[in-house]
């Protein structure tokens, strides 16, 4: 659903050192994201609060889960 809003499903970004910086960048680039609920996974681990992003990390924006 995030991909629907921002019109793409993958992005390659320059290094951003933390999830706060990442959010700031994404909100600037895709203002619609500001009103969406999502969590951030860094290399497939859910980030808790503001977390450091290692170089070359795989980042995923995860809307609320709705499996089952």
């Amino acid at each position: 659903m995030i991909a629907e809003e921002i019109g793409q499903s993958e992005l390659v970004l320059d290094q951003l050192d933390s999830t706060e910086l990442l959010k700031e960048y994404l909100f600037g680039q895709f203002p619609k994201l500001q009103s969406m609920k999502f969590s951030i996974a860094i290399n497939q681990q859910l980030a808790q609060g503001d977390e450091k992003i290692p170089e070359g990390a795989e980042i995923a924006l995860l809307p609320p889960f709705s499996g089952g």
């Binding site: 889960f65 709705s66 499996g67």
Partner: peptide, 27 residues
């Protein structure tokens, strides 16, 4: 298990409607 699967697995359900529209499922 059922509670945790629904709360913790990154899985998403897109509800497809008879009008060709869709809404995202909310647990």
């Amino acid at each position: 298990l059922v509670e945790r699967i629904k709360a913790e697995l990154p899985v998403w359900g897109k509800e497809l409607l008879d009008t060709d529209e869709h809404v995202w499922k909310v647990n």
